[in-house]
Structure formats: C-alpha cells, structure tokens
Design a protein around this nucleic acid. Structure first.
Length: 325
DNA sequence: TCCATTTGACCAGC
DNA sequence: GCTGGTCAAATGGA
C-alpha cells in the first residue's frame, strides 16, 4: 500500500488526500445529522424539512466523493488501495467497494488496452480487448434511481450528464423488464469505454438499477469542447489522447471537484461538480411520466433514461439513494 | 445525410 | 446449452 502510494505522482497523492479528507468530513457531518444508512428508508420516506435536504445533499456528496475516489483509484497505475472503508463513520448505502477493481489486472487496464491497440485506431482491436473478460474488470458501481410521478427522477444520477448511446436491450432471466445497454457516444471518437445498464426493478417498477462500468475518458460537460458534428470527420483529431492518462484524468477531476456546502439549510445552494452541470429536465419528463403512470403502469420507462432528453441546469429533483460497488 | 434506436445474431463465460 | 453482453444491419427521425 505504502509502496504503491509512493509510486503515485504528487498530484495523485494530493488529490487522494483531499478527496479522503473531504469524504471523511462529509461522513462525520452526515453522522452528526443522524444520517440514515438505509437505502430503503431513503427510497420510501420523503420528508421535506431542511434537515432532510441536508442529509440528502450530504448523501450525494458522499457518493460523489466515493465515486471520485474509485475513479482515481481505477485510473492510478499502479492502483491505490481504495481508501474507502465501510466501517469508517456512517456508511452510506454501499454494499461493497469495487470488487472488480482493476487492481488485479496488471495495474492499469487502459494502458494495456491502448498498448494492445498498437497505435492503431482499429476499433475491432479495441473491441477484441474489451470483449475479453478483462472488460469486466473495469470499475463498476450501481445506482438505484427511483422515479416518482410527482417529483421525477430520484437518486444519484450525476453521471448521466454524459452522452449515452443505446446499443442493446435484452430480456434477463428472472427479470420482468428488459435490460437496456448504453455506451458512451464518444467511444469511437475518444476511446471512451464507459457503459451503463439500466434495469427496472422487479419488486418496485418505479426503481431502476443503473449499473455503470468504466470511467469516462471522454471530454464532456463544461470543460469539453462541443462534440464534432461528424465523428468520422474528426478521426484525425481524436486520435490524440484525450484525458486518457491518469494525470489527465486527475487534472480533470481537480478542476471539477468543487463542493459548496454553505447554506445547506435553505436548500438553494447547489452541490455540483462543474464538470457535470446539466441535469435532465425532469420537469418536462415528470409530466410525461405522470401521464404514463396513470394511463399505463407498465410503460417502458427504461427509455426515460435515455440521456439524450433535454437537460436542465437547475437543481436536480432527484434524491440520492444508494450506490454500491 | 447523419445519428440514434431497434433487434436479431453472435460470442464468451459458466 | 444457457445466459448475459455486445455487435452490426436495418430502420427511422431530424
């Protein structure tokens, strides 16, 4: 552990330290607020006092910190032992800590990925790599998102500011609803291999389990240049490495990780990562959902997760629920 | 024309 | 052989 940490750059060490400090502080604050660690409680109770808002925001802060740490850990070569500890203060709603950490696959999976590419932009070679079981070694976490007819999407959803493209849908054994598969729109242009799966819960059709796999290496969000009108025409440009090294990812994280906690009580101060400013326009989709919920209880709300829907920079209407690795 | 979605087929792991 | 995950051709919308 120490040895590994010594091999990190100063920036990585500093970032890890800062993230850890922030995480611990948030956890302590969460504990002082008497934060609940039960995901079900957060799903089923929606009281609205300011303290509840604070708890909710804190949960979101915690989950964001932990995911950021997970990303840093994953992008580190060699990876750092994740600092998250389930027994450290109040656990949020995790069920584990990245069991599929790439720590077991010769350090950086991505280094192997791109070495394997041999400098070629051949998608099939990369596909070949990622078709292997090593693809499963990418960091994975799951978020539960609840759709409330009145309040819209609830649950951590900050990752979905990214552009996703649906590439498959499949009926899963024992699941009432099909699972949808999404990959990053910029896979071909920016070698971003992040994917996500959306599975509607059997027990509660208003709950969706969104499983993310792999960290985004593409440039999206505020710091990102506008996507090319035609990816094909951008081939020569996108061959340049774009935030693919751990350092670049760390740099990106450093610029994006800003937490404002003052004024939590009034509920107006927004916690956000500037890199992930927009959120879905739940106001619009609420109506859509509400109407469908009343008319058809079995509408395919998975499509509702299509990130191509309008986004709204306003405060998100969702509430953090659970993230588990 | 470009891009996203759909959907049947294919492949790897178990 | 079954299942989950992905590919890629077909299709449709902007």
């Amino acid at each position: 552990m120490e040895g590994k940490k010594d091999m990190l750059t100063w920036e990585q060490n500093t970032l890890l330290s800062e993230l850890t400090i922030g995480l611990e502080a948030a956890r302590k604050l969460h504990a002082q607020l008497g934060g609940s660690s039960s995901s079900s409680s957060s799903l089923t109770s929606f009281s609205s006092p300011a303290t509840e808002t604070s708890k909710i925001l804190l949960k979101q802060i915690l989950s964001s910190y932990e995911k950021s740490l997970a990303i840093v850990n994953w992008s580190s070569s060699p990876p750092v032992q994740l600092i998250l500890k389930e027994d450290a203060v109040a656990p949020v709603t995790h069920s584990g800590v990245i069991p599929e950490s790439p720590a077991s696959i010769n350090g950086s999976p991505r280094s192997e990925e791109f070495i394997d590419g041999g400098g070629s932009n051949n998608t099939h070679r990369q596909d070949h790599f990622f078709n292997s079981k090593k693809r499963k070694m990418l960091p994975k976490w799951t978020e539960k998102v609840r759709i409330n007819p009145e309040r819209g999407l609830e649950g951590p959803h900050q990752d979905d500011v990214y552009s996703w493209r649906k590439y498959g849908q499949k009926d899963i054994l024992g699941a009432k609803f099909p699972r949808s598969y999404y990959r990053c729109t910029h896979r071909s242009t920016q070698n971003c291999w992040a994917t996500k799966q959306v599975q509607r819960s059997n027990s509660d059709p208003t709950v969706f389990e969104v499983t993310y796999r792999g960290a985004h290496t593409c440039r999206q969000g505020s710091a990102a240049p506008p996507p090319p009108a035609s990816p094909e025409k951008q081939d020569t440009i996108t061959k340049q490495p774009i935030a693919q090294t751990p350092n670049e990812l760390l740099e990106s994280l450093k610029t994006s990780l800003t937490v404002r906690t003052e004024g939590l009580d009034d509920g107006e101060d927004v916690f956000s990562f500037p890199n992930t400013p927009p959120f879905y326009d739940y106001g619009t989709t609420n109506d859509y959902f509400g109407g469908l919920m009343e008319s058809s209880p079995i509408f395919d709300a998975v499509d509702w997760f299509n990130p191509t829907v309008d986004i709204n920079p306003e405060f998100p209407t969702f509430l953090p629920d659970s993230i588990y690795y």
